[in-house]
Design a protein around this nucleic acid. Structure first.
Lengths: 345, 345
DNA sequence: CTGAAAGCGCTTACAG
DNA sequence: CTGAAAGCGCTTACAG
């Protein structure tokens, strides 16, 4: 395997100095280098397949064109993948690469991750949380170009991008109400995740706005079997609701399974809505599930955009003034499919 | 934000030369540097929080302690996340970081990805395919330390790590047979993925080995609704099977939904098995699904191990001899849960 | 208009 | 036992 060509190789072939090569290849040849030499250099570079060594560039410029991404545990999930994809696309378009480290929620690993990344001279940081929560910002992020995803600094010292859970839940509940439902129950997630409370709040707001009494959500959890158990509890012949708002799409699967076993049809006998819009679940369910889309990809992209623009500004990161940055709530759009119908009674 | 300390800073503080600092910090002080100076240097490094600049190290050593990972589209899926996690853990343990680029199956993006990664001076490459397939190895991988995941070079010029689909499918079918089933139908995936054919083969082998006639698999696809439709077709009152082998876990969900609507219980009236062991599906289904685990994490880890050991050897990559490396078939273990019972008739 | 020099931060022969 | 020098590949002032 021949060693990759260096600017020296190009200079030798073109019969000029390395400086000339650098100038021309970086578009600063005009007015500095004779036109014929420019052509010579371009030709030499092309024939050698020259492309500058990124490591040398980094050492000189003290920037690496890479962004450090630290995550909770996000990297493992499909949603995390989407988030990373959004971030990666934006970074790549700006010529940056991502250095991703998953801390598994271990503070030691996290500390080491930031140190490793700093040694790699990353230009900025992204921290992405697995599930919505406050994040105690470590010093490494303070002075740097950085942003938070799916979490926020309690003092808002860093830009944060979050899904608007309350609004999402509100809109899907309102959708149910508009279709005529009055007797709606919510199967909610575990209370350790703040998303649960937020989605409950949205549910309640929509019910209140319609002047409907909102029954207390019944806590089930996040998995299929939890939804199944919840539905079995709630779908009693005596006083069953006409619609069920689920903690997420998986819970909705459990509800549909239970409904089927109880001989009830969805949406004929009971309407069901989910949350997440998991691409392997919601659109493929029978019937396809009306749900709310969690904009993971957009959030990742937005946050990376913030990091990158801060990298370009550069200066502001060094300014000592404690800045307050906004939390950006990103829309969770309602995705209407076929699991909702007007109530049958 | 104070600039990070350099070895020069340490040298100044300790009153020695940079060479001495380097020697001592790299454990080659003994016999070279006076003990008291060593102590001085150690202390200075600690107090400054010195840690060497990885970029400078890379430029000098011509290695970057990073591995380029190029994927199909893998990065987006939960399974891809697991694969990456396995690879990342192994890399991190060896002090390497991953530079991941998702090509979205676009040849142009792929070519650019390899070039970008080469400029970053990665020490090796991993290519991971979304779904099992042959992979036409690009030149960038040939001379380098590299390995393939979930795909293979037709000429076996690169080490490849693949799930043993045939054996996995065989073992889950055999499990059904051992529990007394003779009338088993397979709901298979689309024929564009080689995994379908492999799983069909395993199914047939198990049936043959038991001297049972294997009905032709019915092609359905990979999603919940496809499984639902397939089950509706197959679970006719007249001649229904006692067990169904599904293309994957999602298909099994569809089958369970259909069975419930038909008033059939799983596993009472019909046994169901999946493939993948999707952690958000299989263990949470009602009943929990007996399935086969796709060892994505192990495959990622194994392949990264291969790349890393090749990086350490170094030399072999440069040897011109066209080498033939093995395809490693990684075990897909049977995961027994509660969706299988002896046939009721 | 062009080349020689300095320097990004590090390590490794090489003199002394 | 220790410091000065060279060099990894690049770009940017700086002389000429």
């Amino acid at each position: 395997m021949p060693r990759k060509a260096t600017s020296q190789d190009v200079a030798d072939l073109a019969g000029v100095s390395r400086s000339a090569v650098s100038l021309v290849l970086n578009g600063r040849g005009a007015g500095n280098i004779a036109p014929d030499k420019q052509a010579l250099i371009m030709e030499a570079a092309r024939s050698l397949g020259y492309t500058p060594n990124a490591v040398a560039l980094s050492l000189r410029s003290r920037r690496s064109s890479s962004i450090g991404v630290v995550t909770d545990a996000t990297a493992t999930t499909a949603f995390g993948g989407l988030l990373l994809r959004g971030a990666s696309d934006v970074a790549l378009a700006a010529g940056h690469l991502l250095l991703v480290i998953d801390t598994r929620n271990d503070p030691q690993r996290e500390a080491r991750a930031y140190e490793t990344l700093q040694n790699r001279q990353v230009d900025g940081f992204l921290f992405a949380a697995m599930s919505l929560r406050p994040y105690d910002v470590p010093p490494a992020l303070r002075g740097a170009s950085s942003a938070l995803v799916n979490c926020y600094a309690p003092d808002d010292s860093l830009p944060a991008y979050l899904p608007d859970e309350v609004a999402g839940s509100r809109s899907v509940t309102r959708h149910l109400i508009e279709r005529g439902h009055r007797d709606i129950v919510m199967l909610t997630g575990t209370s350790d995740l703040v998303a649960s409370g937020l989605r409950e709040q949205g549910f309640r707001e929509a019910m209140d706005a319609a002047g409907l009494p909102a029954a207390a959500p019944v806590t089930v959890g996040w998995e299929i079997d939890k939804g199944y158990a919840g539905a079995m509890r709630v779908l009693t012949p005596s006083q069953r609701p006409t619609a069920i708002v689920c903690a997420n799409d998986h819970v909705a699967v459990g509800v549909m399974l239970a409904a089927a076993q109880l001989g009830m049809s969805v949406p004929g006998d009971v309407s069901v809505v989910g949350y997440d819009d998991d691409e392997n679940v919601a659109p493929c369910l029978v019937p396809p599930l009306t749900t709310v889309r969690l904009p993971h990809r957009e959030i990742g992209a937005l946050a990376m955009g913030a990091v990158l623009s801060s990298v370009l500004d550069d200066a502001p990161a060094l300014a000592g003034a404690p800045k307050v940055t906004p939390r950006t709530l990103v829309d969770c759009p309602l995705v209407v499919r076929d699991s909702v119908a007007p109530p049958s009674r």
